Amino acid sequence: MLDDRARMEAAKKEKVEQILAEFQLQEEDLKKVMRRMQKEMDRGLRLETHEEASVKMLPTYVRSTPEGSEVGDFLSLDLGGTNFRVMLVKVGEGEEGQWSVKTKHQMYSIPEDAMTGTAEMLFDYISECISDFLDKHQMKHKKLPLGFTFSFPVRHEDIDKGILLNWTKGFKASGAEGNNVVGLLRDAIKRRGDFEMDVVAMVNDTVATMISCYYEDHQCEVGMIVGTGCNACYMEEMQNVELVEGDEGRMCVNTEWGAFGDSGELDEFLLEYDRLVDESSANPGQQLYEKLIGGKYMGELVRLVLLRLVDENLLFHGEASEQLRTRGAFETRFVSQVESDTGDRKQIYNILSTLGLRPSTTDCDIVRRACESVSTRAAHMCSAGLAGVINRMRESRSEDVMRITVGVDGSVYKLHPSFKERFHASVRRLTPSCEITFIESEEGSGRGAALVSAVACKKACMLGQ
């Protein structure tokens, strides 16, 4: 009897593995994704193909990295998701002549009506938060230079001027797309009239992360975010950046690689679950690469896999709870928690219980395998993109072996128990001629924006502006 049951459990697990095998990517698959990513990057950089390229390769006008001589107080704003952060950054000489960066910050959550109302409502709310922060720190009387981390696709015309191309991540505030974001912020500050600010720089969160990590390690020339969304930036040779005049030196390019796949480059790798996630998203047909990796989508992918296993009578005796059938019910943090389970399955059992399920031991094991399959594919897909960037940098610099540091931020990278190990191992397999160091950014977005502002202020002083 026991043997029969054991055989049935083994057969069930084997069927589960057959279904989950769809998520496995072979090294040849990853090399294919990497080569296609490089081709799209090239198209994004070139003037004649930029418009139709899915990977936009947006110039950021960040050319210099901090040298350690900029000092002063800077205000930093960070808008990239449902939370908005205001930070005071003091850049100065530390002990023994070292450079020191001290920060104080406060988080504000953005109400739904500000995210989806008008641009005026959104930026009025942001300036209200700045006003509140300055009151708390008794700094209303000071006109501070301000660095703005704005983590949406922007076409820069200068370091302090950028046109919002399109909202992502659930934002829909009308009247912002096609307009200068810094102008919208300046107008809102003017409307309030109770404080003055000098907006000197606007950067993407990947750029802010790279600059913040450069402060720790001067070989950091790539910034990457794996959180709600997924994106990367890197220092490109100016001669390859056709959208900006000049051939000397390097400029940081914001790849906006989340949109890779929007022209069909990933079609052969998309599964039924991916198509369902895409169809029910706020932007169907867009940001397809990001939807395979980002935390906004990972939990939902797992939920759809679990429903398939229920329908195949391989999980929960073929019956799903009402909660499990509800879109968004299986949160991405559950994926991390399930994979963090120590082996007694308590954590998995508790999560499934909150979803109205009474799982068996085998159910718990199957749910864990589903989570591992989805998150491992995410790590491997992400590795193909980064390997594409790094191999490109090595080739354009004609280096036999390139040493490089990548600064990384984002909740999936930082909080998932195995993502970074799987990701690092896969990147290294795909970049055999590179020695890569990964560092995690601390308060990256805010500190990085302030350091970019410090560079901009120093330049302005040198130019006598």
Results as ranks from 00 to 15, higher is better:
residue 3 D to Q: 12
residue 6 A to Y: 06
residue 6 A to C: 08
residue 8 M to Y: 10
residue 10 A to V: 10
residue 11 A to Y: 07
residue 15 K to I: 13
residue 16 V to E: 09
residue 22 E to I: 06
residue 25 L to G: 07
residue 27 E to H: 11
residue 32 K to W: 06
residue 39 K to A: 14
residue 45 L to C: 05
residue 45 L to N: 03
residue 53 A to Q: 05
residue 55 V to G: 02
residue 55 V to A: 03
residue 58 L to Q: 02
residue 60 T to C: 10
residue 61 Y to I: 02
residue 61 Y to D: 06
residue 63 R to M: 12
residue 67 E to C: 05
residue 67 E to L: 15
residue 73 D to R: 10
residue 76 S to K: 03
residue 76 S to L: 03
residue 77 L to V: 04
residue 77 L to R: 01
residue 78 D to I: 05
residue 82 T to A: 02
residue 84 F to H: 04
residue 84 F to Q: 01
residue 90 K to Y: 05
residue 91 V to P: 05
residue 91 V to E: 03
residue 92 G to F: 08
residue 97 G to N: 03
residue 100 S to V: 08
residue 104 K to H: 09
residue 110 I to P: 05
residue 112 E to W: 03
residue 113 D to K: 14
residue 114 A to E: 09
residue 114 A to I: 05
residue 115 M to V: 07
residue 115 M to Y: 14
residue 121 M to N: 08
residue 124 D to A: 04
residue 125 Y to D: 03
residue 129 C to M: 07
residue 136 K to G: 05
residue 138 Q to R: 10
residue 140 K to F: 03
residue 140 K to G: 05
residue 142 K to G: 07
residue 144 L to M: 09
residue 145 P to Y: 15
residue 147 G to F: 01
residue 147 G to H: 01
residue 150 F to G: 02
residue 150 F to N: 02
residue 152 F to K: 02
residue 154 V to S: 03
residue 162 G to H: 00
residue 163 I to F: 06
residue 163 I to M: 04
residue 164 L to H: 03
residue 166 N to H: 13
residue 171 F to L: 02
residue 172 K to V: 03
residue 172 K to Q: 06
residue 176 A to I: 05
residue 178 G to H: 01
residue 179 N to G: 04
residue 180 N to G: 01
residue 180 N to W: 02
residue 182 V to Y: 04
residue 183 G to D: 15
residue 183 G to V: 03
residue 185 L to T: 01
residue 188 A to W: 03
residue 189 I to T: 07
residue 193 G to L: 07
residue 197 M to I: 13
residue 200 V to W: 05
residue 200 V to R: 06
residue 201 A to Q: 04
residue 202 M to P: 02
residue 202 M to S: 00
residue 202 M to A: 06
residue 216 E to P: 15
residue 220 C to G: 14
residue 220 C to F: 03
residue 223 G to P: 05
residue 228 T to R: 00
residue 229 G to A: 06
residue 238 M to I: 06
residue 245 E to T: 10
residue 247 D to C: 09
residue 251 M to N: 09
residue 251 M to W: 03
residue 253 V to Y: 00
residue 257 W to A: 04
residue 258 G to P: 15
residue 259 A to I: 01
residue 261 G to V: 00
residue 263 S to A: 10
residue 264 G to A: 10
residue 264 G to R: 11
residue 268 E to R: 02
residue 269 F to K: 11
residue 271 L to I: 10
residue 275 R to I: 14
residue 275 R to N: 09
residue 278 D to N: 13
residue 280 S to P: 10
residue 280 S to Q: 10
residue 280 S to D: 09
residue 282 A to Q: 15
residue 283 N to I: 13
residue 283 N to F: 04
residue 285 G to N: 14
residue 286 Q to Y: 14
residue 291 K to D: 07
residue 292 L to H: 12
residue 296 K to T: 05
residue 297 Y to W: 07
residue 298 M to R: 01
residue 301 L to S: 10
residue 302 V to A: 13
residue 302 V to G: 08
residue 302 V to H: 06
residue 303 R to T: 04
residue 309 L to P: 01
residue 322 E to W: 10
residue 324 L to C: 10
residue 326 T to P: 08
residue 328 G to K: 15
residue 329 A to K: 14
residue 331 E to D: 13
residue 331 E to K: 02
residue 333 R to F: 10
residue 335 V to W: 03
residue 344 D to Q: 11
residue 349 Y to T: 11
residue 351 I to N: 08
residue 352 L to Q: 03
residue 358 R to K: 11
residue 359 P to K: 09
residue 359 P to V: 09
residue 363 D to H: 06
residue 366 I to Q: 10
residue 369 R to H: 10
residue 369 R to C: 11
residue 376 T to S: 11
residue 381 M to G: 05
residue 385 G to S: 01
residue 388 G to K: 00
residue 388 G to H: 07
residue 390 I to Y: 00
residue 393 M to S: 06
residue 394 R to G: 09
residue 394 R to M: 08
residue 395 E to R: 11
residue 397 R to D: 05
residue 399 E to D: 07
residue 408 V to P: 04
residue 412 V to L: 08
residue 413 Y to S: 00
residue 423 F to L: 12
residue 431 T to Y: 10
residue 432 P to T: 10
residue 434 C to M: 08
residue 436 I to N: 03
residue 441 S to K: 04
residue 441 S to R: 05
residue 442 E to I: 15
residue 443 E to T: 03
residue 444 G to I: 02
residue 445 S to E: 00
residue 452 V to K: 01
residue 452 V to R: 01
residue 460 A to P: 15
residue 461 C to N: 06
residue 464 G to R: 12
